[in-house]
Structure formats: structure tokens, C-alpha cells
Design a protein around this nucleic acid. Structure first.
Ligand SMILES: [Mn+2]
Ligand SMILES: [Mn+2]
Ligand SMILES: [Mn+2]
Ligand SMILES: [Mn+2]
Lengths: 153, 153
DNA sequence: TTCAAAGTGTAGCCAAAGCTACATTATGTA
DNA sequence: TACATAATGTAGCTTTGGCTACACTTTGAA
């Protein structure tokens, strides 16, 4: 063996417990797994409200991806029971899709308003919120809402 | 053609401009693309500080994945210039890896402290922060820090 | 009524990240 | 010094979500 000295490990200061960080990262991955569904149903509900119906091209434009990606994702969302799709027809939310969309819309609004209340410009708040929203637990959402109400009487 | 009436599209209320939402989602996807690198280098720096060195098993435990996933990701991070790895040796950060780790550590601390300052329990704050941190723009991070300083004189 | 343009669908490519199963190397202890 | 065990590496599978290229269907205007 070459002369590679093996220092004894210095008494593990445990800056942050491994178990908690591992659990946090697992939770973050779970949130990312539902993120696409959330953004899609919210966009579909928005389009249905503003345009009367949601079509593949509209979704693609709004989500910043190609229509191919939209198509494949819609197939998955149908499999998971959030939407109903038929070839060459508009896209419709199921009941559970509508519920999810409403929840996400509500949460999105609170996150944006909260960031704005900190002095962040509308547009920047909108950009950050699109990512942050999926990692805001019910407790944190409640804290945001509480803070908003306290600052705006 | 079957009798499917085509209503004229009601005057597009444009709840949220498609362009802004598309750009927000693109930004979120970019952030997700760098997220793994950020969490890894931060974990490696933490382990090096607390244990003296970072080994594959330690990383796997701390990140909540198998050692296989750690190995493949480390190969990518080496390709991207954040780490140096040698078979059966400890993992080392490059200069740019150390810089990234320091930035992320700093940002992580501010996000956790900010959430705690809203009354969210430490553990919940830690969990939410692990996901939120990657979507906090410099402007928003500054707002968090400002708020913290204002509330803790 | 025709037909070009717009919309939609599909085949097949890629990379990232997760995994299990198994092979190989180091290490500490008997 | 052996050798069992822990650590590490690798082969190969899966899912998700990007993409281009091309084919098919609808739709509206000439
Ligand atoms: Mn979002
Ligand atoms: Mn993180
Ligand atoms: Mn972190
Ligand atoms: Mn995220």
C-alpha cells in the first residue's frame, strides 16, 4: 500500500443531523414529482377561464415547452386522473384536477402577495413564486398569510 | 361533421400574461438543473468540515439516496468542474466547488433564519428551506436578509 | 368546395436521477 | 496474516421531461 496516511476522524461536530437533511431532500424530491401536475392543472384552469377552453398550443405557449412535451405530460395526467383528453379536442379537468388547480391557484396568490409585501417587484416576485410555491408547506403558507394580514389592516 | 358547436372565444381576459409565466417556468427549470450540484457541494463541504473528509457512503446517507446515485452524480460534477474524485478515495471540492458551496451555505442559512423569524418551527423551516433556497433570487434573498435585520436589532 | 395553414399526434432521440443486483477493493480484527 | 465486512464501483433497468422531424386532421378563407 502506498503511503497514504489515514487520519482518525475528528470528533464529528454534526453541523446538521444527516437524518434531517436526508428527510428534507426526500420531501423536496416528492414536491418536484408533483410540481408538473400542479403547474399544468393551474394553467388549464386559467386558460379555460380566460379563453373558454384549453388547447395544446395554448398550454405549450404558456408553459414554455413544445406541444410534444405537453402531449406526453397530458397522457400522464390523464393516467393519474387529473384531466380528460380526446384527440383533437380541448382539454378538460376532472373533479380532482379542478380541486388541485384551485388549491394551487390559492397558494400561488399568497406566495406572490407575500413576496411583494417584502418590497420585491411584481415581476421578480412572480418569477420566484413559480418555483417557491411547490415547497411551501401548509404551516409556512399559513405564516405567509398571517404576515400579510398583519401588514395590511 | 357532428354537431359540436364552436363558440367564439370570449375576449381573452389575460389573467396572467403567457409570456411571463413561460419565462418564470423556464427559470424554475434552470434552477432545478443546478439544484443537485448545489446540494452536493454543500453536503461535501459540511462533511469535510465535520468529519475531516467526505466519503460516498456519508454523502448517500446525508442526501437520502443510494451510493449508486451518488457515484453517477459525482461523475457529472467532476465533468462540470466542481469536484475531484479518484476511485476508493475521499471526495474533494475544486475551487469553484468551494465557492459554490459557500454561496449555498450562506443562502441556506438566511432562508432558514427568515422562515424561523415568521414563527415556523426549526424543523419545518429546515424542510421547506431545502427546496425553497434554490428558487430565491438575489433580490429576494436581500429582502429576506433586510427583514431579518429589521426584526432583530 | 377546395386547400393552405394551423393545430395535433407520434416516432425516436437525449440527459438526469432514481433504483437493484452483483463485482471488486480496502480495512480492521481475530 | 487471513478473511469477513464495509465501502466502492459498474451494468443495466425505469421514469420524467426536454427536444426535432415528420405525419395527419381541422379550420377558415378564397
Ligand atoms: Mn410553479
Ligand atoms: Mn436544497
Ligand atoms: Mn441546502
Ligand atoms: Mn424546486
Amino acid at each position: 500500500m502506498p503511503t497514504v496516511k489515514k487520519l482518525p476522524r475528528p470528533a464529528a461536530k454534526t453541523v446538521r443531523p444527516s437524518a434531517l437533511q436526508a428527510e428534507s431532500l426526500r420531501q423536496t424530491r416528492r414536491e418536484h414529482a408533483s410540481e408538473t401536475a400542479e403547474d399544468y392543472v393551474e394553467a388549464i384552469a386559467d386558460l379555460a377561464a380566460s379563453q373558454g377552453e384549453a388547447r395544446v398550443v395554448d398550454l405549450a405557449r404558456r408553459l414554455g415547452v413544445t406541444h410534444v412535451t405537453v402531449n406526453r405530460t397530458l397522457a400522464r395526467l390523464q393516467r393519474e386522473g387529473y384531466v380528460r383528453v380526446q384527440p383533437y379536442r380541448a382539454i378538460f379537468l376532472t373533479d380532482s384536477g379542478r380541486v388541485l388547480a384551485a388549491d394551487c391557484h390559492h397558494r400561488h396568490g399568497i406566495v406572490v402577495a407575500f413576496l411583494c409585501s417584502l418590497g420585491i417587484p411584481e415581476k421578480a416576485a412572480e418569477i420566484d413564486a413559480e418555483g417557491i410555491e411547490h415547497h411551501v408547506s401548509p404551516a409556512t403558507l399559513a405564516a405567509f398569510a398571517r404576515q400579510l394580514k398583519a401588514n395590511k389592516p
